[in-house]
Design a protein around this nucleic acid. Structure first.
Lengths: 170, 170
DNA sequence: GCGTGATACTTGACATCTCAAGTATCTGGA
DNA sequence: TCCAGATACTTGAGATGTCAAGTATCACGC
């Protein structure tokens, strides 16, 4: 993969989404845009690394990661929930991975509507190789943050997550 | 827009991406996945609201938001930077908005390679209507977070953003 | 048994998005 | 002047993503 050429169409991250905000805007809006900005930057880097190092994509990696944690396999609907994408999307990604021999759909004898998706041996092998690199990238990206600050971030984001979940039933 | 039917294909957010992590995984990895989880949830809600309330999409709203802050107009490349997407993408979204009469491409007399994209009067009118609602949604989503915690989050995310920017030149 | 509704998954239309190649224009020297 | 490299934008292929409708199966009450 030609990294030099790719860099030409890559997004320069000098000025970003957050510049849209004026100081007089609401704190929540500023916070949201900053959150989005951070996530986008990290996600973009991880995606580029997956592409250049393993010629794969984030959603494919994500699906395999979910399966790696579930040796008994996962239903399509469970994958959909965990990946936070719609079912139709999971169908497409699973199709590709199945065609590449990295996952299999096994029919559930108890309920013939259900597929249990599992990693193949080859899929497992490939995922482990990728996961090790992936963790390194992420550790590097957060490397300059003090451990104490990481914990604070974890806690605050945990609180946010709780709030968001709480708004679900309403 | 039939909200009831739409809900059927909507993502149930009970178990999410973060469940992939075991306790023995690296703190940075857990932090990253939690960050991603929060952002995805908020983004998903905002997108759904934009769709059901204004029949528009997040990227369209984002492009207009950038323009609203720049009355003199923005070059395609500037839009690309600020929206953190590639140039080809901006071309497509601008095409649609131009066709709908919400933005215009004006040729730059000083450099004929450049387009200055501006909001039309109608575009400005529509955006203001959407922006007011949008801010309400975001304020509601963060409503249950204490102001003090919001400030802490802002600061910590600011630190993270600095770190990420610092890794750019390397 | 037999419908009726719920559930699991797939499909197709459409909108983003990236990447890399293509076109047009500008800029700075030989 | 003229051309080689940079810059601005567009294009086209391919991957993701949503939504809503379609198909198959299950579950439950009659």
């Amino acid at each position: 993969m030609p990294r030099d050429k790719a860099a030409l169409s890559t997004i320069p991250a000098t000025i970003d989404v957050e510049t849209r905000v004026h100081d007089d805007h609401h704190v929540s809006l500023r916070l949201w845009l900053r959150l989005l900005s951070c996530t986008n930057q990290i996600e973009s880097r991880v995606r580029q690394n997956l592409q250049s190092s393993f010629n794969t994509t984030l959603p494919r990696f994500d699906l395999m990661a979910q399966l790696e944690r579930a040796p008994q396999g996962l239903k399509m609907s469970e994958l959909s929930q965990r990946m936070m994408v719609t079912g139709g999307n999971v169908t497409g990604i699973t199709d590709v991975l199945e065609k590449e021999g990295l996952v299999v759909r096994e029919v559930d004898s108890a309920d013939r509507r259900v597929f249990r998706v599992k990693l193949t041996t080859e899929g497992e092998r490939q995922f482990r190789r990728m996961a090790a690199e992936h963790e390194k990238w992420v550790v590097d990206l957060f490397g300059a943050i003090a451990p104490k600050h990481k914990k604070q971030l974890m806690d605050l984001l945990g609180e946010l997550k709780e709030c968001l979940a709480g708004l679900n039933g309403t």
